[in-house]
Design a protein around this nucleic acid. Structure first.
Length: 965
RNA sequence: CGUGAUGUAGCUCAUCGGUAGAGCAUCAGACUUAUAAUCUGACGGAAGCGGGUUCGAUCCCCGUCAUCACUCCCA
């Protein structure tokens, strides 16, 4: 073996320039990160950024407000971390990048929590004054804002926290009201009706949260609708059969829905008992799959299929209401009942034909809106038929105790009387009930306020005359860039197909539809339009909040001075909370001194239905275009197996836990490593592997810091004088600069991080640093090679630290500060440094690509000898390289190839080399034969060289002796 | 049910329609001068499944399965 122990050799360790740094290998992020937050707080980082960037082009990420109840979950963390990276990176790219976080405060969940307190005490919230409840809601939201704000800041999110916005601030409430009045003014708002869950017992609409599902026994009836219009001859005297569990909705029937994917048939009853409702000779249409069930229910003894009925045929068909032409009905039901295609229709139960009463079902309503069917108003608040409805006037669906009323039986009896009943029965099924009274609920249409999608808007924008739908759809393509591009289609399709916007909610915790109306006829109303009244309302909201609307004297106060004040009714509904958040662009950007339209909105894909959507509509209605220039969407976070997280499964990853155990930078790094545009996974194993990557990266920085110890500007070397290896690194930086700038501009963090990370580990740690350790440790401080290396390290350090700062905001600050930045400084106040494109040298890169190929063969050859224990360290070797390929030979010649391969010596020959030489399959024309290095081991640099010994420092090589002397 | 997506190594992700790659993890080895580090090497894949188009499909088309989001007066 070459290195027999040299007991007489002095220890030269102290003469080496080993890396020296205070920067610890162990990060201790959970403890250290809060100190950086305190530091940023102390230097006023956000304000300092604003001052520094004054006059620069503004860039504004407008924050989508999270809902102010509960602690943060992983989805919030993902969202806010992404936003923080957008904000910080754009600041560094040279913009004035503003960020004002906000919270969504109004809405049912909070109101529900407040009500819960009363429920637990057995109190009725209806007895509590509205403004007292509103105050409790406000306090509730306020507390959670405080909690969430701390949790967000702990993640490293920098923004204008003291200046954050709230949808419940007086200013916000006033602007929301103002925007609503603007939409009244341009004629978009109208009152219509929509079916909702309604309790006839409590005479109120209920929210989904107030509904419980219990088993309930219902009537089931099969009803014949006679066909009155069709192209086919043999359909005369036939009926379409429907099935329903709510006989009381039959008087409200306006259509029958069928499916275009179900096969239907025309059936002839060939045998049935004489007293049967369904008689011999009846021609009935039902779905083929359900025919047997239907005829069994109708007690038909025999039937045959006459022929199939196609969807095209059904589409043109019209039936009569079962009560058409009935005596004493006064023509109430003498209208046509069309057959319409409906995607909700199945052949799993019933007849394959769905009775449709637009006022009494969600699907029915959608069909009604789509085909412009008339809404009926036959059922009153207590679930009673209107008094003047023939046959059934005044009858109740449910009695006062929630038991069966008389309506169902009366309808069934009448159907039987007029010969339209095909069969009847009973069915027990899950049915919605009120959580309070436990009584069954019904669907009932109630007055609601809408924004019209298809009415031309006359206003003073350049898009005047276009409808809301047209404006929104135009703007999606004209004004907005979508990241990823597929996000555009989702929103576009939704806008294209959506019905009118239901603005009203029968709730209390929100901004009121602050207008007055009066009835001008049955179902007809007029909305008060009075600038003075509006001005009074807005001023009151601004000064006192929207509570002003709910004060007892509000109507008198706002209508003061009008002679007809008594004629007007105050509307007490509140606005859909999506309207609130859809207005944030107005009160945060326009009134808050920001940029309008916002540079970017960034939210989860669910916000296509939510905030992206409502903001687009609101802004299109009032300003003609989207309030954003770019929209970035991210997916949802699932557990390690790709399953949705839920409390019951116990598969949740809480951001607080990750922060506590690993630190926020690890969580941020996780975000950077996944494809956020899709759904991502997280779990213990994934977090651990992220932490591993982090450690590796951290060590690379630690090495740089240690190697730069004592670096002074006077050491710098001009790139032109640097060795090729150094210039290669500068070339790589020039390449990376482009990737980083482009990556940040296009929100592609995965690629940006991956590129920088692989550069740090592959190019730097295992190649460049490994080679240059000898020069850094052993060369004299004034050696050109060492100075060039340290110059490059300094350049590397500056860029890598700043490039990664938006992502690893804590660690990069720690790295930055370790190099003696002053107390007021921060890496987050730096701009991405210019990287001269002159550093780029593709010829050099191509050449070094060859050099690295040859190097791989050498290391491979050494590995073989290491395996058979011929050598340990590569410095014990002095191989010979045979190169046949001329480009490779050219590349290697003139290099310190022994340094590059970390051997003590190396010989380069041209030609194929001996047959038994080491080769790699994928590197042709290169062969390596092994040899032990000749000479004595230098006790200082450990190279084995012929020139060791005979110098003033014993057991040193010429170079090392020169350094010590 | 519908609408919008996704499915490639244990994990995170690449692959103009042309022999499937990278980093991390794992395993093995070396070093002890980045040391709770560093270097080297190896292992690792019916590209969810089934059809079709094509000389050729991870990629294009159809179907199917799984997962996710949206659909509710809630996020």
């Amino acid at each position: 073996m070459a290195d027999t122990p040299q007991t007489d050799a002095p220890d030269y360790r102290d003469t080496l320039f080993l890396p020296k740094t205070e920067f610890p290998m162990r990060a201790g992020l959970p403890k250290r990160e809060p100190e950086w937050i305190a530091h940023w707080d102390k230097i006023g980082l956000y304000e300092a950024q604003r001052m520094q960037a004054e006059g620069r082009e503004p860039y504004e990420l407008h924050d989508g407000p999270p809902y102010a109840n509960g602690n943060l979950h992983i989805g919030h963390a993902l969202n806010k971390i992404l936003k923080d990276v957008v904000v910080r990176s754009h600041q560094m790219l040279g913009y004035n990048s503003r960020y004002v976080p906000g919270w969504d405060c109004h809405g049912l969940p909070i109101e529900w929590k407040v009500e819960e307190k009363y429920r637990k005490k057995g109190k009725n919230k209806d007895e509590v004054p509205v403004n007292q409840l509103r105050k409790e809601c406000r306090d509730f939201a306020g507390e959670w804002i405080g909690t969430q704000m701390e949790e967000f800041q702990r993640l490293g999110v920098v923004g204008d926290w003291p200046g954050h916005y709230e949808t419940m601030s007086f200013q916000a409430e006033a602007v929301i009201a103002e925007e609503f009045l603007k939409m009244i003014d341009n004629g978009l708002v109208y009152r219509g009706s929509k079916p909702v869950m309604w309790s006839p017992i409590e005479k109120t609409a209920l929210a989904e949260a107030e509904v419980e599902y219990h088993d309930h026994q219902s009537h089931t009836i099969w009803v014949k609708f006679p066909v009155v219009k069709t192209g086919a001859q043999d359909i005369e005297n036939t009926s379409v059969v429907i099935w329903t569990t709510t006989p009381w909705t039959i008087p409200q029937n306006r259509a029958i829905c069928f499916s275009e994917t179900i096969s239907y048939g025309l059936y002839l009853v060939t045998d049935a008992a004489p007293e049967n409702w369904t008689a011999k000779g009846d021609l009935l249409m039902v779905a083929d799959n359900l025919a047997a069930d239907v005829f069994k229910a109708a007690r038909v003894d025999a039937y045959e299929k006459v022929r199939a009925v196609s969807a095209d045929e059904l589409a043109g068909m019209v039936t009569a209401h079962p009560f058409r032409g009935v005596d004493d009905a006064n023509g109430e039901w003498d209208y046509d009942v069309p057959l319409l295609p409906g995607e909700h229709v199945t052949d799993e139960a019933g007849t394959g034909f769905v009775h449709t009463a637009p006022s009494h079902g969600a699907d029915d309503y959608m069909i009604g809106v789509k085909y412009k069917l008339p809404m009926t108003h036959n059922v009153g608040p207590a679930g009673e038929f209107r008094d003047d409805l023939p046959f059934f006037g005044g009858l109740h669906i449910l009695d006062r105790k929630g038991k069966e009323g008389k309506a169902n039986d009366a309808v069934i009896k009448k159907l039987s009387e007029v010969g339209r009943l095909a069969a009847r029965g009973k069915l027990t099924h899950s049915y919605p009930h009120s959580w309070r009274s436990k009584a069954p609920l019904i669907f009932r249409n109630t007055p609601q306020w809408f924004a019209a999608m298809d009415k031309p808007i006359e206003d003073d924008t350049e898009y005047s005359g276009k409808t809301l739908r047209e404006r929104a759809m135009d703007s999606i393509d004209r004004d907005v860039q979508w990241y990823p591009p597929t996000a555009r289609n989702r929103l576009y399709n939704m806008i294209e197909n959506r019905p009118d916007w239901v603005l009203s909610r029968q709730r209390i915790w929100g901004v009121p539809l602050c207008c007055f109306m009066k009835e001008t006829g049955p179902g007809q109303i007029e909305i008060l339009r009075d600038k003075d009244v509006d001005a009074r309302i807005l001023k009151a909201f601004r000064d006192e909040g929207a509570d002003a609307w709910f004060e007892d004297d509000a109507a008198a106060r706002f209508l003061a001075g009008r002679d007809d004040a008594a004629e007007w009714t105050k509307v007490t509904d509140i606005l859909d909370v999506w309207f609130d958040s859809g207005c944030t662009h107005a009160y945060v950007l326009r009134d808050g001194g920001g940029k309008w339209p916002a540079s970017v909105y960034l939210e989860g894909t669910d916000q296509h239905r939510g905030w992206f959507h409502s903001s687009l509509l609101e802004s299109s209605a009032t300003r003609g275009r989207a309030p954003y220039e770019r929209v970035v969407t991210h997916g949802f976070t699932l557990d390690a197996k790709g399953i949705k997280m839920s409390k019951s499964l116990g598969n949740q990853t809480a951001p607080q836990d990750v922060v506590k155990q690993y630190g926020a930078d690890i969580l941020r790094l996780w975000v950077m490593q996944v494809d956020y545009t899709e759904d991502q996974r997280i779990g213990p194993e994934i977090i651990k592997s992220v932490a591993d990557s982090y450690r590796r990266l951290r060590n690379t920085f630690r090495f740089m810091l240690g190697s730069l110890d004592g670096f002074d500007a006077s050491e710098r070397v001009d790139p032109a004088e640097m060795p090729e290896l150094e210039r290669l690194m500068l070339h790589r930086l020039a390449e990376l600069d482009e990737v980083v700038r482009k990556g940040y501009a296009e929100f592609d963090y995965q690629k940006t991080f991956k590129t920088v990370f692989e550069f740090a580990t592959v190019d730097l740690s295992s190649f460049y640093f490994d080679i240059r350790k000898d020069a850094l440790y052993c060369d004299a401080p004034d050696s050109l090679r060492r100075r060039a290396c340290r110059t490059v390290l300094d350049i590397l350090f500056e860029r890598l630290t700043i490039w990664l700062a938006p992502m690893l905001c804590f660690t990069m600050e720690e790295v930055w500060q370790t190099r003696g930045a002053n107390e007021e400084d921060s890496v987050h106040l730096q701009l991405i440094p210019d990287t001269p494109q002159a550093w780029r040298d593709d010829t050099l890169a191509a050449k070094w690509s060859n050099i690295r190929q040859v190097r791989r063969v050498v290391t491979g050859a050494l590995e073989e000898r290491r395996r058979d224990k011929t050598i340990g360290a590569s410095l014990e070797a002095a191989p010979t390289v045979y190169i046949a390929d001329s480009a490779m030979a050219e590349a290697v010649s003139g290099q310190d190839f022994a340094d590059i391969c970390i051997t003590s010596d190396i010989a380069i020959e041209t030609g194929d080399g001996p047959e038994q030489a080491f080769r790699l399959d994928d590197v042709s024309g290169v062969a390596v034969t092994f040899a032990i290095a000749k000479g004595e081991k230098c006790a200082r640099c450990w190279k084995i060289l012929p020139d060791v010994g005979g110098h003033s420092a014993p057991h040193t090589c010429l170079r090392c002796n020169g350094v010590i002397a």
